[in-house]
Design a protein around this nucleic acid. Structure first.
Length: 520
DNA sequence: GAACGCGTTGTGCGA
DNA sequence: TTCGCACAACGCGTT
């Protein structure tokens, strides 16, 4: 047990429930805890300051938690495969542990790194940890085809039972090495701040999210939420408020996504909390929310080209705007300049806080795509991915499919109104007044449609529509109807194509539920 | 094998 | 004010 191990932190930026980290600790006398900032993954022009800032804060918290256990975190920057190859050789590493991932880019990276380690005679432990279940197991249980409806996913969950229990954090950490110096590898001194970041050009004063990062904070937030037993047992997602000034949901998504909180820990803590109580049921309950996440990950893991329309077998082919015209519409949407205060408020909250309520995301995603602007969901997805502190490849792609009626959900005549939708929960427009402050003085009567306010009132409110705040870029009542026609045509064209393609319908696979995962 | 029921979260109208 | 309904659907599972 005099081995030197390298633990590469991926999403699992935590000490609790971290199977590959525990493996390294058990097997090695020295463990190098490493995070690699992969700038091919976090492309500087595609990632915003709140998202990266929250990640750096998470790393800082992890470093501090590791130091409390006798270790520390190293942060390198570069291509993970090259960084790991160089470090293995430089520091005579004999064991490599890391959390496997489901995203195509990371899956490819994992395979390369496993090959690299093999070629250097290094033992590797790539283990699952970011989802509740091993996705390969779930896929095999589903006969190789991920369930595409919540109903069928719930059937799968009834067959798997509870996910494994979360693992405890290690009591202490083996000592790290003194320094990670290595020619050909860029290693930061300590944990980088926003202004330290090589290749990015951030002004720290633009880091405005209110979320406090880290595992301790995540567990504290979870514990506080679960202590509200009535709220937990009666939780129904569709009934929570998108316009609340403080989150009306758990707001744990940034912690689960960045790996500060294990989904298995949340699942089992929730189960313990609700023991012996009546409670709401999936898919609307809190457990249901974990199931939605798990389902999105399984689909992202198994559906080819899930992050694009082309070559994506479950995505309806809809002739969205994609070129320069789309980009100019997209920019107004991203910057909160659509002229619909509800939409602009949500987009402003996205850019400043890095988080919005789920239904607020629905409103703006519908507006950008099938509702109003007819811009491709891929571009909207990128904007969310850039700004969200809970940016999550699988869930983000899943949700944009859903909202644009490209997969999973098809009732395109159920269209969110940028005027009516928020009025139901916020008739006075307090949410708008907070996030679009230039409209703060408008009377409630006009807050959702400020362009209808008489000129005298606009002057008195210090905001002339068309000058200080834009007029609506489209007439929702008109374009939403027009877009429903387009959706109908796109669906019909898809049906005709399927009929003429002569392809036989996919045969059902023979039942083979257990395979290599059969209980012995 | 055809028919039927159902699905996390819409809107606007008329009774 | 509240409720039921129509409006341009699809895929999956059950009967």
């Amino acid at each position: 047990m005099s081995k030197i191990g390298l633990h590469w932190f991926r999403y699992g930026l935590r000490l609790h429930d971290n199977p590959p980290l525990l493996k390294a600790i058990k097997t090695c006398s020295k463990v190098i805890p490493l995070y690699i900032l992969d700038t091919d993954y976090f492309k500087p022009d595609k990632v915003g300051i709140n998202r990266i800032g929250f990640l750096l804060d998470t790393l800082k918290a992890l470093d501090s938690d590791l130091r409390a256990k006798g270790s520390r975190l190293f942060v390198a920057q570069g291509n993970p495969n090259e960084v790991i190859r160089n470090l293995i050789q430089e520091h005579k590493v004999e064991l490599l542990s890391f959390e496997r991932d489901t995203e195509p880019y990371n899956k490819h990276m994992d395979n390369n790194i496993i090959e690299t380690a093999k070629s250097l005679n290094v033992e590797t432990f790539p283990l699952w940890g970011h989802t509740m279940f091993d996705p390969e197991y779930l896929l095999e249980m589903s006969n190789g085809k991920a369930p595409l409806t919540m109903t069928s996913f719930l059937t799968l969950m009834s067959e798997t039972g509870d996910p494994p229990k979360p693992l405890d954090p290690p009591e202490s950490m083996p000592s790290p090495i003194d320094n990670l110096k290595c020619k050909d590898v860029f290693v930061y001194e300590g944990i980088p701040t926003l202004s330290d970041l090589k290749g990015f050009n951030f002004d720290p004063k633009d880091y405005t999210t209110w979320f406090v990062a880290g595992e301790k904070e995540a567990i504290k937030k979870m514990t506080e939420f679960l202590a509200q037993k009535h709220r937990v047992s009666t939780f129904e997602k569709p009934k929570t408020l998108p316009t609340a000034l403080q989150p009306d949901t758990t707001a744990l998504s940034p912690y689960i996504t960045r790996g500060s909180l294990s989904s298995r820990l949340f699942y089992h803590s929730l189960k313990d909390t609700l023991k012996g109580m009546q409670s709401s049921k999936p898919p609307v309950s809190l457990k249901g929310q974990l199931y939605w996440r798990e389902m999105a990950y399984l689909i992202g893991f198994s559906v080819p080209n899930f992050n694009q329309m082309e070559g994506n077998p479950i995505c309806k082919q809809i002739p969205w705007l994609t070129g320069e015209e789309a980009k100019s519409l997209l920019e107004k949407w991203e910057m909160g300049q659509t002229g619909y205060p509800a939409v602009d408020a949500v987009m402003n909250q996205l850019r400043t806080e890095g988080w919005m309520h789920h239904l607020a995301r629905h409103l703006v995603a519908c507006y950008l795509t099938r509702g109003d602007l007819w811009v491709t969901w891929e571009l909207g997805r990128d904007v969310f991915d850039k700004h969200l502190v809970d940016a999550d490849w699988s869930i983000n792609n899943f949700s944009w499919h859903w909202l644009s009626c490209s997969a999973f959900f098809h009732q395109y005549f159920r269209c969110y109104s940028p005027v009516a939708f928020f009025k139901k929960t916020d008739p006075n427009g307090n949410y708008i007044k907070k996030h679009v402050p230039i409209l703060a003085k408008f009377p409630d009567k006009y807050i959702y449609e400020p362009w209808t306010a008489p000129k005298g009132i606009q002057t008195a409110c210090g905001c002339i529509i068309g000058k200080d705040y834009p007029k609506p870029m489209v007439d929702h009542k008109f374009v939403s109807k027009e877009n429903m026609d387009r959706m109908k045509k796109a669906y019909d064209a898809g049906k005709a194509k399927a009929k003429n393609s002569g392809e036989p319908p996919a045969k059902k696979l023979k039942q083979n539920k257990l395979g290599k995962y059969a209980k012995k």
